[in-house]
Amino acid sequence: MAVEDPTETPRVRIDGVGKQYDSAQGPVQALDDVTFDVEAGEFVCIVGPSGCGKTTLFRIIAGLEAPTNGTVSLDGDPVDGPGPDLGLVFQEYHLFPWRTVAGNVGFGLEKTDTVDSGERRRRVQELVDLVGLDGFEDSYPRDLSGGMKQRVALARALAVDPGLLLMDEPFGAVDAQTKKMLQDELLDIWTETGKTILFVTHDVEEAVKLADRVVVMAKEPGRVREVVDVDIERPRNRSDDAFGTHYQRLLDLIQE
């Protein structure tokens, strides 16, 4: 749960973020005054209907796009571009197809001169084990299923030990059974590593299952409707009453 201490700098502060696009029909307000914090170690989901600017917000937080107004800061420092402080995981995996599983996971470590090759190998093996892919170190992405590709992408993002793991509908392209498995694994990894996770999804059930807090967005313009705490003990079961109550509450907020 979030530590409510105003003197402490949050891991992520999204402050008054707005984004305006120019289109043929004139300017479009994609995001308007989006403000919320994510505390260190917290798991926060962003949900909202399609067109609410979730992906735009993801890209702004990741430093891939600049906001028109407002700022995003990580541990008090403004984000001005992508970098190893932010681990990105996309729905479409975006693995490097010419690299093996181990090569993908080790990619970020090769860019930091602080680790020697022995240490790097050890770290890569650790991460490959963490995501349950031992035995597939030398496989190329083309030989992996969607679920396995996403595990590689997760391990690759974790390799550089980012302050924030930013995930954009990471389980949106896999089948229901794999999705459930990946959600459980992600929670295990989160518990094990204590990472701060900001997770974009359109799946309300996924948000209730995973998050400490859920940021519900509304569209036209994309904005924060409400931030909902999910106070349910983990592991969470969707047949529990509390799960159903939260689920319904979020659904109502989205459909409002």
Binding site: G83, P84, H94, F96, F107, K111
Partner: peptide
Amino acid sequence: DLLDVARSLGV
């Protein structure tokens, strides 16, 4: 997207 990923990994 691959370039973005690489940048986010410190390239």
